[in-house]
Amino acid sequence: MTARATSATGLPPAARAGGFVLLALALVVVLALSITVGARPIALSDIWNAVTAFDPAQTNHKIILDLRLPRTLVGLLVGAALGLSGAILQGATRNPLADPGILGINAGATLCVVLGISVFGITQLSGYVWLAFLGAGAAMLVVYLVASLGREGATPVKLALAGAAVTAALTSVTSAILITNVQTLDQIRFWQVGALTGRTTDILLQVAPFILAGIVLALLTSRILDGLALGDDVARGLGLKVQRGRAMVGLAAVILAGAATAAAGPIAFVGLTVPHLARAFTGPNYRWILPYSMLLAPILLLGADIVGRIIVPPGELQVGIVTAALGAPFFIALVRRRKLAEL
């Protein structure tokens, strides 16, 4: 059965297009709420005035441009990156539980940040970005090289096993450093939980080129993912170069998940749950799954960030805590309902 034949599941094509438009409108609403909702409520009219006629004497204008707008745009990019990276990792490995954490991306980023703090004394969040991106890419490379050993190459099972092994090794090293260095633990705690708070324009400008490039590359892999979904042998019979295609998908995942983790820390469940939610509407066709995931994920992430601001006033819960609290029961219910075994 081909990907085109199985695409009959999910919404009809016309309804998918309409659903995509509705998601885009919902994302616009969430973006507006992300800027206006907080400890200090801001009117929608202030957003336009702050952008077109900024007045440094106006407190609301400063809050919008210095705090709310960068935070919202980082959330938009990070959400899109996590949603797409989760979707393409699940497609490439044919593993319904795959997310950026399964291939060591989060663990590699965390270890590199910990080493930067403890060894090089880096304390600024802008410095964490490059360390986390370097660690994420290096960890993914190690996982792929380990999984590529042998005649079969980097099969889905070997990728998952290699990712689990590398993640365990990196996590143990990170834990050992943090246990013996309380100062490093204090500095990394805020980043490690996953947060959008304090994300400035500098961080946005650092990660935006990587995430935008990763989005373009990910959207170009839809044909590869549709082929891999049929199994490696069938994909080869259709003329797909499996190892080259899987390497291209892996590169897109590293760029997206690495940059997202670098900007906001390791955020759980977004990359895991969103592709399944998208697949429920679109069916197995990745030409639809990827765009849907790209919109659904920032809606979820920014929505969780908004909930975190209003649930415990005057303080706030970091978005990584909220996504874990919302995502875990949702995913359990999804698995029980759909009885997912493989993609």
Rank of each mutant, 00 (worst) to 15 (best):
A138F: 07
L343Y: 12
A262K: 01
A176R: 06
L111I: 01
R309T: 14
A324T: 10
L65Y: 01
Y286V: 08
Q124W: 02
A169S: 14
I211S: 00
I332S: 03
P313G: 09
P13H: 04
G265R: 01
I299F: 14
A24P: 10
L225F: 13
A81G: 01
A257I: 02
I105M: 01
G163C: 09
T174E: 14
D202F: 13
F190H: 14
A147F: 02
T155A: 11
Q90R: 06
Y286R: 08
I311V: 14
A24S: 15
A333P: 12
G101N: 08
V254D: 08
P298N: 10
T110M: 08
A278P: 14
A213E: 06
R71D: 05
L141G: 00
L161I: 15
A341W: 07
I35H: 10
L76F: 15
K339R: 12
F210V: 08
G271P: 02
L296A: 02
T9N: 05
V270R: 01
D99V: 02
A257H: 06
G150Q: 08
T6K: 15
T201Y: 01
N60L: 02
P291R: 03
G19T: 07
L205G: 10
V166D: 04
L251K: 03
V142S: 09
G303M: 14
F269K: 09
D305N: 12
G163W: 11
Y292F: 11
G271Y: 10
A162T: 07
L256M: 11
A304Q: 06
N106L: 00
T2F: 03
V51D: 12
R94C: 11
L103P: 04
A252C: 13
V37C: 07
I88G: 01
G18Q: 06
A57C: 05
L217K: 10
G101T: 05
A341E: 12
L25M: 15
A195Y: 00
V74F: 00
L65D: 01
G214A: 08
T197R: 11
P209T: 05
I299C: 14
A253N: 00
A252S: 09
A247K: 11
W130Q: 11
I122A: 07
L125N: 06
G75Q: 08
D46H: 04
A328L: 12
A32T: 14
G327S: 11
A278Y: 09
A208S: 15
L240S: 08
G163P: 06
I47R: 02
L219P: 04
S222K: 03
I299P: 08
L84P: 03
A138H: 00
G18W: 11
D232I: 14
D232P: 09
Y292N: 04
A147T: 03
A8I: 10
R336S: 10
A268K: 03
N181W: 05
A235N: 13
V119I: 14
L76E: 09
V319T: 10
V270A: 09
T221N: 11
F20S: 13
A263Y: 04
G121M: 05
A328G: 15
G116R: 02
S222V: 02
V242G: 02
M294V: 04
F54T: 04
